[in-house]
Write a protein that binds this DNA or RNA. Structure first.
Lengths: 218, 218
DNA sequence: CGTCACTATTTTGTATACAAAACTAAAAGT
DNA sequence: ACTTTTAGTTTTGTATACAAAATAGTGACG
């Protein structure tokens, strides 16, 4: 039995680098607009430029990075307008997920959503911000999966990744965590109503509240 | 002044290969499920494996290609279920575009949409199938642009490209063209109502009708 | 006759090397 | 002093080489 601590025992270097960079960007460790030089990353990850280039190439194709005018790849940097448009698109996609999920509910997906929400509540009550961020992520991912549509789920995940750096700062106070968890509960009620209009409106409301919370943190 | 016939004078080899492959796949020259071997492509394009790998990597990230279980990259092959899921996602995104567009109408976007529709009607009445396909494409793209949200527009375009090979066969009869044009007109009415619910429902109806037409053609 | 093991070939992933492009900076000329 | 040119350095893109993994093929043994 392999060591569980070795997270990705047989992942290629390119994949390791890709996910590592994605996480760092999502966590805001790599600031938007920052330039990523290949050789630096190569030495940092103890690899050559080849796998680094592959990782950068894929992240660029996903919109996490952007290719500069002349030279270099940069962490995607968004103007206020860009951000508002990206969030608008994200809201629409999340609402569509909620809509589809509401039409395809079953005992399994329902229990999965409830389990994910339970973890959110737990993290919120203990005031563990990092844990809540993870649980919140998992909650939304659970809804994506509940659509039963992997294509829909993938776009939604992609947008979540894109907006990661800008959502990272929210949940500044313990009260925010509890408010978010409550908002989740309202959303669940709307989705479980199995009415597509109610479900998508519920998600829009939740996303709106979440967005305002993010704005407040900046 | 440079020669206009040299389409991409300073495009990198990797980009040339990427777009060439994308077009071949969209045109159906490379069949779904077909394996793409790096060395073969390299010799075919007169390049080395490095730019080929970069192109394959990006196309994989975009879902045009898929990585096989064990070995090799393959042209994405969709099962009936996959297709239904992809179309479902596409419908949702198109509906979201219609919804946003309806909230952001102005004289310019209205006239653009009407102009695009006029070309559809013209092509439909003259029974020019190829022209209608182009006009239809332009019509939907116009709606994407009318959202004022390039991110939304890009996802929508992406899905339209993905489903291109499977929508190509529809519009078998001249009556289909006229029916589609009429469906467009209904859709325009719904969008111009400036009621987001009506607009998104209108697009859903249109997409549904269009989808059924595509099914009929197979 | 079938199964297992071992070798050989293909294929992928990574490293390194090199050429071309572009930015930087310094020097020369006006 | 300012522009232009030109050398130098960084950086990107591509090619080739090599190692590791995987599949296929071959033969031996049950």
């Amino acid at each position: 039995m392999a060591n569980d601590l070795a997270q990705t025992p047989k992942a290629s270097a390119a994949q390791r680098i890709e996910t590592a960079l994605r996480e760092e960007i999502a966590a805001g460790e790599l600031a938007p607009g920052q330039r990523l030089d290949e050789i630096g990353l190569a030495t940092r990850f103890g690899a050559s430029r080849t796998p680094v280039r592959e990782a950068l190439s894929r992240l660029t194709a996903q919109g996490v990075l952007v290719q500069g005018e002349r030279r270099g790849v940069f962490v995607a940097e968004y103007t206020r307008q860009d951000l508002s448009q990206i969030f608008e698109a994200m809201h629409e996609i999340e609402a569509a997920c909620a809509r589809i999920a509401s039409q395809r509910l079953n005992l399994l997906t329902k229990s999965e959503i409830e389990a994910a929400q339970a973890k959110c509540v737990e993290a919120a009550q203990s005031g563990d911000r990092a844990a809540y961020l993870r649980a919140n992520e998992a909650f939304h991912t659970t809804i994506y999966r509940a659509t039963g549509n992997p294509y829909m789920a993938e776009i939604a995940s992609e947008f979540r990744h894109r907006t990661g750096p800008f959502r990272a700062k929210k949940f500044s106070t313990p009260e925010d965590l509890l408010a978010s968890a409550q908002s989740h509960q309202d959303l669940i009620d709307d989705i479980f109503s199995e009415d597509s209009t109610t479900a998508s409106k519920g998600m829009r409301d939740h996303m709106e509240a979440s967005f305002l919370m993010a704005l407040k943190a900046n």
